[in-house]
Amino acid sequence: MIGEMDADSVVGYFRGKSILITGSTGFLGKVLVEKILRVQPDVKKLYLLIRAPDAESAKLRIQTEIIGREIFHVLKEKHGVQFNNFIEEKICPLLGDIIYENFGLDNAQLEELSKDIDVIVNGAATTNFFERYDVAFDVNVLGVKHVCAFAAKCPKLKMLLHVSTAYVAGEQEGIIPEKPILMGETLKVGTHLDIESELILVKETMRELKASCSTEKDGRKTMKELGLKRARHFGWPNTYVFTKAMGEMIMGNLPIDFPVVIIRPSIITSTLKEPLPGWMEGIKTIDSVVIGYAKQTLPFFLVNLDLIMDVIPGDMVVNAMMVAMAAHSDDQQVQVIYHEW
């Protein structure tokens, strides 16, 4: 059971493992990559799927957007002059994107990669609440389908962990039971969701925009409004959580014969203590409030002291992810486990 696992057994699990991570340039992705490398230097390989025009650009993105960040200073101090060699040995950049089948990798790359992967962590997502519908659909819905299809080709895969969001539950109040979102299930009574129809709608709208020679600005506005309209039609407050919910449906509807964990964090904010207390990157969601308070440009803010603030530090989410991976690997049957924070 998860509660009975100690830190040593969790850390030990990652020894000798090859892990494919999508979304590694995002905030949570960086925290995960750093944590695995710091606590388990004997991990075999971290394959990081990176969007870039070429292999050199992919390496540069890893250097500047991941390894070069302040969060890696503790690891650099630990390895000293051997740090770059350590990173070279452990991190393998993969030039690709989850919006494409097989991530856009060629057959030779695909075959070699699939044979080596033990664990897949799908953290890639567009988290913009009001993203263009076509973009959000490509990443948050079809991307999940492509990740699962690749996972099915990995003969030694031990488990797949998918990062979702607690807000797939929409704006419901009270106690919300942890359960899978069934294909076609919506949050508004009297509606039924057909993902294939939504895909057709996206494609037809894009065709109409192209046929009418719409400007890029008009096209962007139309697709953003469409995403919001469809989300609210089915009971979700915005395009982000709507497409993340569809991604979960896709995952639950595919013929999967390996353990799956879907983790649903709430609002992810700065690290609590590991590897640096209070580390954050960019100003997203509630971060502006945290920074405003730290700099005293916002000396106070109104709260209801009887309520719990729905935020979770990034390092706590990563800890939960690592425990979930270690606890649910090699299950004899498919289990979809939901962890909400």
Rank of each mutant, 00 (worst) to 15 (best):
A320N: 14
C213G: 09
F130W: 13
E171P: 00
V261K: 08
I21M: 04
V43W: 08
I67C: 01
D257W: 07
N107P: 00
P237G: 03
G96T: 06
R264P: 01
T239K: 06
T271N: 05
F137P: 01
D118I: 06
K229C: 12
L305I: 05
T222Q: 12
S270I: 02
H192V: 04
A211N: 11
S214V: 03
I262D: 12
C213L: 14
R132Y: 00
E111R: 14
K244S: 03
N102P: 01
A152P: 01
K30G: 05
T25M: 10
I21W: 00
K158W: 07
L276I: 12
T271P: 03
F234D: 10
L95H: 04
E185P: 02
Q109V: 09
Y240V: 05
M5R: 15
A327T: 07
A108R: 15
N84A: 11
E34G: 00
G123T: 04
V147Y: 06
K145L: 15
E185S: 09
G16S: 07
G278V: 05
G219S: 15
R232K: 15
E248T: 11
K145Q: 15
F301L: 04
L46C: 03
G227N: 08
I87N: 02
D287V: 12
L110K: 06
I200Y: 11
N319M: 08
P237A: 02
A245Q: 08
D106I: 06
K179V: 10
